[in-house]
Design a protein around this nucleic acid. Structure first.
Lengths: 202, 202
DNA sequence: GCTAAAGTACAACGAGCGTTGTAATTTGAC
DNA sequence: GTCAAATTACAACGCTCGTTGTACTTTAGC
């Protein structure tokens, strides 16, 4: 197995353990076992525990962001029925890759650990992940609004993208077993998109 | 000092340390020092570290929820200008007590730690805190919608309350020093309330 | 097949942690 | 002021953890 492959296995195992146990609870021995690797190899690749954590964050954010960027382009490239398209997009966004559960657990860990992570690492992570996705979504929303001014009114694109992602998140963070059923996702996204478009004024 | 007073001091110190360091990082010795109390007293009151954490969560949620319930009644008791009143309410909601920063840090810790906390403790915390507040907000929104059907259209009150709180949160979780400036809060709340009422459709 | 690079197994270290027991001290109610 | 209850100081335990060094084995490219 090549060096790069070992590195990937360590990152995958570390993602699993960090996401499940958090930074402080996660032990190097457990991570190494999960990755099927000796602890020494792990140290040779990443220096120390903090370096490994930073690498895992960056990797996971980059990978998920790439997948989400693709979804944005795929579903919002051309619009036929805005509301229906937004709903399909939202559902695809909230039900992606199989490791999505691990990724969002990791995000929760990073949120909690933010005070103990160097600011530059946080910034790099935000920029490579959430902000990149929000920027792409903002650009698409702007394009839609400009193409057909009657459909959408976007003053502050980044803010609108933020509001959209908040509304379709459903915001059931972690409690209860973990993820939502497909039906729950559909309902959360549908009501979220409706609120995003029309609001609650009478 | 009475027994109950010592208990309160331990809870306050533990809140500070748990919020800053998280459950796993926080050490009993540091908590005891922060509270100005011997570790033995701490064990006599709360049994063990997990019991202390559960008590801190419950206490903090209950206290903050009570404050927020009061704000809901105070600002949404009677409505003169719906949009303006909602904005004032949102600002008051997002700028409450001095220990609000500690509380929301603790919430982030609980989110991350959810997999290692007994489900019943999570449920009790949700019920005493966020859900209680959301219920009150939902009731007020429903009352407004019923009093003046032209103002507000609420089909699913709990969902509407969730959407409202998401939109005015601004969603800047923790990154950057910590909290937002008053101007940032005002802008986040204003745009959030506008989106809540009118949405983004053209 | 040889050789250098990469990975493994294993022991060891020092430190920090949660928790308990105990004996002495302080506190608050009567 | 007395006395019981609460709190303290302190030592000790068993355990886990991050990290490093070392000698041995496997791997991959030529």
């Amino acid at each position: 197995m090549a060096r790069a492959a070992k590195r990937q296995e360590v990152l995958a195992g570390a993602l699993t353990v960090f996401a499940r146990d958090g930074y402080a609870r996660a032990s190097i021995d457990v991570i190494a076992a999960e990755a099927g690797v000796s602890t020494r190899t792990l140290y040779n690749h990443f220096g120390d525990k903090a370096g490994l954590f930073r690498a895992v964050i960056q990797e996971s954010a980059t990978k998920v962001a790439a997948a989400q960027l693709a979804i944005v382009e795929q579903y919002l490239g051309e619009i036929t029925d805005l509301e229906a398209d937004l709903i399909e997009f939202g559902i695809a966004w909230r039900t992606p890759m199989p490791d999505y559960a691990e990724h969002s657990s990791l995000v929760r860990q990073v949120n909690a650990e933010a005070g103990h992570i160097p600011q530059e690492a946080i910034d790099a992570w935000q920029e490579a992940g959430p902000i990149a996705v929000r920027r792409a979504l903002a650009a698409r929303l702007t394009a839609i609004a400009e193409a057909e001014p009657g459909l959408l009114r976007i003053d502050d694109p980044m803010r609108a993208a933020l509001h959209f992602s908040l509304l379709i998140s459903g915001a059931n963070p972690s409690y209860r077993g973990g993820s939502m059923t497909p039906d729950e996702v559909t309902e959360a996204v549908t009501t979220g998109v409706h609120a995003f478009l029309h609001g609650y004024a009478g």
